[in-house]
Design a protein around this nucleic acid. Structure first.
Lengths: 245, 245
DNA sequence: CCTCGATGCGAACACTGTACGCATCGAGAA
DNA sequence: TTCTCGATGCGTACAGTGTTCGCATCGAGG
């Protein structure tokens, strides 16, 4: 023990009680999600998060490598809110898939920051909860009896649509929320042809349901009753020169 | 003029030549897009942008209000790369729409930062170029002869899918690019079942085409030859308790 | 009781967006 | 020509960021 120590603070002013109940990764992630939900991703700072947890900012780094990693953890955590997609059969696949899609949309709307974040990190390398969700969905398409190797593409198409529309919905809602008025008030201010009678929330839900049903229609066309795994070509129109990458 | 001025730098050291060819908003936006394409949205800083333009960082604020506004301008600018969707008829709508979708995907892949940014700001309030694109698409659906009031939802469903899948594709590609290896090498390292013969780019294009064709199939189901504007109910499966908002 | 790894955290560093005020410009007025 | 005045460039400064480092303190195991 070096004796040339020169304590500026006396022994008595020095804090003594336990520095802190130990932090947990779970606690941190939970607090992160709260903060993200409340103030958005730009407003998330390690120091703010620290004080919210009654801890020093740099203490968080004992449990989490990065701000980025922290956000990834938060993303995967909210995927845990979705209960694993129900098992389906050839007869019930459509309802099951529609339900999973609706749940996913609701989750993205509950956490408006999730959409953009998914777009920065990709859906695959997100974490166990996200994986559980996507593979559950895949299982539903397999149970539906899609041609071999096509289940992937079907599931991917569906999630792309859901995440895409829900993300833009969430952005729109956050924009309105930040302006402080109700959606209805905002619409009658900004949209010339908006009837006071229509329920904007219902409109959004109908839009979502419309697209969802069209996709399910299109996918159903790849199924014939009793056809389990036959192979037909599916390219009809598309495919052109490849985009610059 | 106060005479208590105390110039530290002598008159001779003071710069004299024209401070700068005047900056333009266009120049700034172009440089912004270059920087965003090259290094991503996190790496965009006003100072870096300034030096790249051989200008002081704070000079930019004479032409642009915000970093955020700057990014919005960049987003709208890249929408200008898309030529306005071609006019379509009842017979040609499918090819026309497919082409617009493919172009949009290519644009998002060229500028990987666009997807997430769209998810933060919403597609509508982005700018004239984006508006031109969406209304061009809408016109194609109108020409196709969709039931009245349904063109909106059709166009929205399609763009949601395209933006959704292209954004996640772009994120995946950026991830690989940052790791420094080719997509093929990355896949054979990270994906257990990956045959060396398959062309990963083709796979992605097929996935995109598959989903696109399914949506177009589903939408086509709402059209009957000669049916221009009749009204049928479209809800089949969906609609449940509304999500928490 | 002592030791030692795990944990908390204050201080510091490099960097960010941006407000402010001054210096300088160039076009039009006198 | 000379003067003026709005537009433009930019140096400085401030509050805030993520993250590293090293020390202080803890609590479990010998």
């Amino acid at each position: 023990m070096p004796r040339d120590a020169k304590p500026i603070t006396s022994v008595w002013t020095r804090p003594h009680r336990p520095q802190r109940e130990h932090l947990t990764r779970e606690q941190i992630v939970t607090a992160t999600i709260e903060l993200l939900d409340a103030e958005g991703v730009e407003a998330l700072s390690m120091r703010k998060l620290g004080t919210r947890l009654k801890a020093g900012a740099t203490s968080l780094y004992r449990h989490v490598a990065n701000r980025d990693e922290l956000i990834q953890l938060a993303v995967d955590d909210v995927f845990g809110e979705l209960d694993p997609p129900a098992a389906a059969t050839h007869r019930t696949w459509r309802t099951a898939v529609a339900r999973a899609a609706t749940d996913l949309r609701a989750m993205v709307l509950r956490h408006p920051w999730v959409g953009p974040e998914l777009g920065q990190v990709g859906l695959l390398h997100v974490g166990p909860n996200a994986v559980r969700m996507t593979s559950g969905l895949l299982a539903q398409f397999q149970a539906a009896g899609f041609p071999a190797g096509e289940e992937d593409q079907a599931a991917g198409a569906l999630t792309s649509y859901v995440v895409g529309i829900a993300t833009s919905e969430a952005a729109y809602l956050s924009l309105i929320a930040r302006s402080g008025v109700s959606e209805r008030a905002w619409l009658s201010d900004h949209s010339p042809d908006f009837s006071e009678e229509t329920d904007p929330r219902q409109v959004r839900e109908d839009r979502f349901a419309y697209g969802l049903d069209r996709i399910l229609d299109g996918l159903a066309g790849r199924l014939t009753p009793g056809d389990h795994g036959g192979s037909r070509p599916y390219r009809t129109v598309t495919s052109r020169a490849s985009p610059g990458e």
